[in-house]
Amino acid sequence: MMELGLMAIGAGLAIGLAAIATAIAQAKIGAAGIGALIEKPELIGRILILLVIPETLVILGFVTAVIILSTPR
């Protein structure tokens, strides 16, 4: 039971911390991106790319969480 609890906490931390890191990065990129968009609206495609780049972090966090929870006990 204890082991299961620790696994759940581990999985939660993996995705939670990754999500916080993604949020911090996206907040900064988003703010800068909006500033750039006001000057040059045609940059929307490139800004969108920059904005979604940090999402890989949370995806990797999610994968880690799934692997932790799928590990045979």
Binding site: E55, T56, I59, F62, V63
Partner: peptide, 15 residues
């Protein structure tokens, strides 16, 4: 490697 792992989002967002 990160580029390839990034495709995990197909599973992640699907789930």
């Amino acid at each position: 490697i990160v580029n390839i792992l990034s495709y995990a989002r197909i599973m992640g967002f699907g789930a």
